[in-house]
Structure formats: structure tokens, C-alpha cells
Design a protein around this nucleic acid. Structure first.
Lengths: 298, 298
DNA sequence: CACACTTACGATATTCGTAAGGATT
DNA sequence: AATCCTTACGAATATCGTAAGTGTG
């Protein structure tokens, strides 16, 4: 029993004529005749009762008819679905990204992706750095955007940009006019930090400790927006990744480059090194890698 | 996309090894490799990511896996079902029969049929003669057992036996000892008849009218059993088809051959002449035709 | 006699298995 | 070196279309 045979059966059953079915199948009459005959032999009995002048379904043929309809419909649907996946006409990509990226750069990139592939859904998990690793490793997401993971993690890392900390100060601060600051200047003021656990917070503390500084933390919040608003109201100063500059400006705070030391860490795309990407996932990865992270405008 | 290819895909996906899948499919490794390759090309992308040492499903392959399982299961089920129908391992026959046959001869024949084909269900409609024709013509039943239908009915009639009327009298009747009766003797007594509409009743009235007799009907009932019991209780006499003799005896009435005139009518199997029988229906027909209606024992 | 399905047969396409090739452990 | 998948190629098989055959209206 082959798909062609069932297709032939259905055509004959619907037209009740070999001649008409031939045209629909783009097949010669003898070929169709043989095909039906082969099907009947494989099943063990006649499906049509044909006098040379009329074609009729046998009761067994009647029994096959609904089955054949369903089989062919399912068959064609499955085929279409797979083809669509490969042609990027259907699919879903699941990604996990750290909040600073998910909230700032990712929307623009996704917009671009959606315009190009309107039928590919994207599910975004906005989670902290370590959870990006976890979601990747348990297979919950196909791609991740985070800091570089430990080497032992079986995750492949492709750098996107270097995330550098900048100072955030109120507009009316004496520091606000400077074109550049050093950490010593910033840390004289009350510091408003992201709350633990957060990769941004840890990076900051480790790098500062290495250069002999300590954070004079006055307030803490899980949300960058809260931090930014607190700074804007003059409650203190902060330091955030470059990507967040736009957000800080929108909240009414001023961002200024920081050095001594320059604190930076690579951020990039992660994927499981033991699993291939789906076609849709690869397309999103390509979009990510071809979208320069515009730090200047950030 | 062919069934073989999907079968090959499933085998490889389940074993994650071309070599093992080969054995399961009784196929050489190159043939399998080509088959998978052809499937991948027809779908437009890779289903397996294979380094020479390991075989893995791509995300699209993962998407196909459950579809392939279902497609093959449905495919094989449909194939099995049809094969079973043809091999009489599955099926249902619907028949309609007049009560005198359905209640007397049919059970023994069905017993024989069921022993031979335990997986073929039989649905019996126990209805009056005309309804047998109707049920056949609207396609509700595949076979019918009834009197010979009018020629215009597009029903094919195969005679089974000739149904002859016998007298039914109480055990203590003066007629009970006779080895044969004529209608004149019987009609001297109150007559207990089947109620209209009933082919038996009409046959009787028409045949008697033709020979100048009339039925002195005293009681009427739709049920043969009631008629029999009334006779047994001495309320009168009756006349029933040969097939009902056993039933009358069981009810305590005596049956005696009747002549002057002999009233008989062929009873047979009916089928639509414009529709083929199912294999199961044909088997039941064969069983019916090869089961002599044993009037002596009736 | 014309139409519709089947059988016969030669040509074409597919599919298969053997043999050789390439890559990884 | 051994294993496993792929490529190459000749052979077997299946499928197709043309032509001839058969039965029905």
C-alpha cells in the first residue's frame, strides 16, 4: 500500500470514473488501472465493482473511503508543516536573555526579525544571567544572550559586544557636566545598586574589589528603572551597563563614561554545543549577529 | 515523501543509528542513507545531524518524529482494518427478516455463522415483509429474508424454501387426530388470525378468497405466540406457515397439513441488485443458502 | 459503433545491493 | 585499525505510456 495508490483510490472513489480520475492524477488510464489493482491485491479484495460501463465502490471500498481521506489529509498536513519549517514559514524560537539586553537592544532586533519572518514566533525569557545558562542546558530555550559562561558548561559563546559600565548621576549633580569620571569621584556619593542576585551587581563588586574599591550601597532594587528613577530624584548615583544609557536618560538621569578602572565584560549569544539550531533559530542567530549593538546611540 | 521513507526515518530516529535501523528495515546501509537523503531533500532540510560517529535529530527532525509516529500508526491501522474485512476477521452484516423466519430458522443459521466467523457482527431487524423491502432499498440492511418482492423493486430474490400453511388446532379438538385437513374442515371453527398488516395474513386472505373461502376471524393478535396460546387454550383454530410448527407445538397446539387449496409462497433471500455485497455479507448469504430449511423438524 | 476499463509489452525511472571512500574513535 | 556513514555504479525491480483487447450501452 503506497501513498500514490491511496491517492489514486480517492480520485477514483470521488469521480467514480477511471477516465476522470486519470486527468486529476496526471496519469494514463492503464497506469491508474494497474495502481488500483495493485492496491486491491495488497489488501486482499476488490474496492471497486466495475462493469466496463460503470464504477462503483464495494462495501469494503466504502469502508476505506473515510480512512483514505483522513490518511491523505494527515499526510499532506505533516508534509506541509515540515516544509514550512524549513522555509521559515512556520516555527517558534525560544530564547533567554539577561534583562539589560532583553529590555534595551532585543526589541529592535526582534522587530527586524519579525518583519523578515512574520510567521516565526519568538518566545523570550527575561531572566538573570545564570538562569539563561540553566534554561539552555535543560533545553527550555534554543538561544541565550548573557555574559560569557564558564568553559565547562557545554555552551557555545559568540561575543556580541563588550558591556562597559558608565556612571549614572542626577542632572543637577556637580558631576553631571564632566565628560568622563573615575570611580573614586563616583563612589564619594551614596550608591544605588541593583539587588542581588544579578550578574551586573556581581561583576561590579568583583571588579571594584580587585581595584581596592567598595560600593557605598544606600539603596537597592531589582529593577533598573527604579535605580534610574532614584538617581534622577537625587537619592544618589549608580553605575550601569552601556546598554542601559537610553533608559537612564529617559528616566531623567545623566550617564557619563567611567574609568580607573574600566569595567567591562563580553556579552554574547549562547547555544548548546551538542545540539543543532532549528532553521528558525539559526535565522534569529544570524539576525542577532548581523545587528551591531549601537553603543553610541544607546 | 513516501511511506517507506517515513518508516526509514522512524527507524533511524528511534535507534539513532543507521546501522541498527538497517537491520530493522531489512535494507542495506547505502539504500537507507539514500532514502533518508531523498526524504530530507523532499522536505527541504536536514532531519538528522550526523557526524560520522553519531546521529542526532535536528529540531525539525524532532518536530517530524511525533507526526511520523502517528502517520505510520494510522496507516498501518487502516491497512489492517481493510485486510481484516477481506479476510472476514472483522466486519458487520445487517439483515432484515420477517418474524416467522427471524424467530424460528434464523437463530440456528446465525449460530453456525458465528462459529465459523466469530469476529463478524450481525445486526438483525425483525420486521414485517414490506419493511424488509424498505430497509433494503434505503440501504439500512445488506440482506433481507422475506417473500418474493414485486419485480419492479430492484431487489434480487433467491428462493430458500416454499412456505406452506398448516392448520393449528387445540390438542383436544376433534380435528387433532387427523393426518391431513382440508380448509373447509378448519373454517367451521372460530379462527384466530394474525393482525393486519402482516404478509402472512394477506397471503392467507387472498389465497382463500381465490378459492371462495372466507376467514371467520374471532380473535386477532400481532404475535404468533399469542395466536398459538389462544389455540392451545381452545379459543379456536388457526393456520400458520410451516416454519412456525415448532413454536406452536411448544405452546401446546397441534399442527396438521392443510390442502384444498394448498397455500404456499416462496420465501428467500433479498439483496439490492445495484449494490455488491460485502465480503461478510456474501459469507452470510452463502451460509443461508447452504442451510436447508428443515421443514420436517420444524 | 463508441466509450470505458483491462491486458500486453517495451521504455523509462527508481530502488537496491556491492564495492569503494572518508571521517572519527 | 575498526566502525559508521556516504558516494559510485551496475543490476534488479517497479512504474509508466502506447497499443491492442474486451465488454457494455
Amino acid at each position: 500500500m503506497t501513498v500514490k495508490q491511496i491517492r489514486a483510490f480517492l480520485a477514483v472513489a470521488q469521480t467514480l470514473s477511471f477516465a476522470q480520475a486519470c486527468e486529476r492524477l496526471h496519469l494514463s488510464q492503464p497506469a491508474l488501472s494497474l495502481s488500483i489493482k495493485a492496491l486491491e491485491e495488497s489488501l486482499g479484495g476488490a474496492l471497486f465493482s466495475r462493469t466496463t460501463r460503470s464504477v462503483q465502490l464495494t462495501p469494503e471500498g466504502e469502508a476505506l473511503l473515510p480512512l483514505a481521506r483522513r490518511l491523505l489529509a494527515d499526510w499532506d498536513n505533516a508534509q506541509d508543516e515540515l516544509r514550512q519549517r524549513f522555509s521559515l514559514d512556520l516555527g517558534r524560537v525560544t530564547i533567554a536573555a539577561i534583562p539589560s539586553f532583553a529590555g534595551n537592544t532585543l526589541p529592535d532586533i526582534l522587530k527586524k526579525f519579525r518583519v523578515r519572518y512574520p510567521n516565526i514566533g519568538v518566545t523570550i525569557q527575561d531572566v538573570i544571567n545564570e538562569e539563561v545558562f540553566d534554561l539552555l542546558q535543560i533545553g527550555k530555550v534554543e538561544l541565550g544572550i548573557a555574559f560569557e559562561p564558564p568553559a565547562a558548561s557545554r555552551l557555545q559563546f559568540t561575543p556580541l559586544y563588550r558591556d562597559r559600565f558608565v556612571a549614572v548621576v542626577p542632572q543637577d549633580s556637580p558631576l553631571a557636566g564632566a565628560s568622563e569620571l573615575v570611580w573614586d569621584q563616583l563612589l564619594c556619593h551614596p550608591f544605588i545598586a541593583l539587588q542581588r542576585p544579578s550578574a551586573v551587581r556581581y561583576t561590579l563588586e568583583e571588579a571594584l574589589a580587585a581595584s581596592g574599591h567598595a560600593l557605598p550601597v544606600e539603596f537597592e532594587s531589582h529593577h533598573l528603572a527604579t535605580v534610574g528613577r532614584m538617581v534622577a530624584r537625587g537619592l544618589g548615583v549608580s553605575a550601569v551597563p552601556t546598554l542601559c544609557i537610553r533608559q537612564m536618560n529617559e528616566l531623567g538621569a545623566v550617564c557619563i563614561p567611567l574609568r580607573a578602572p574600566v569595567i567591562e565584560r563580553p556579552v554574547g549569544v549562547l547555544q548548546r554545543s551538542d545540539h543543532e539550531l532549528s532553521v528558525a533559530g539559526q535565522a534569529l542567530l544570524d539576525t542577532l549577529l548581523s545587528s551591531p549593538v549601537d553603543i553610541a546611540s544607546a
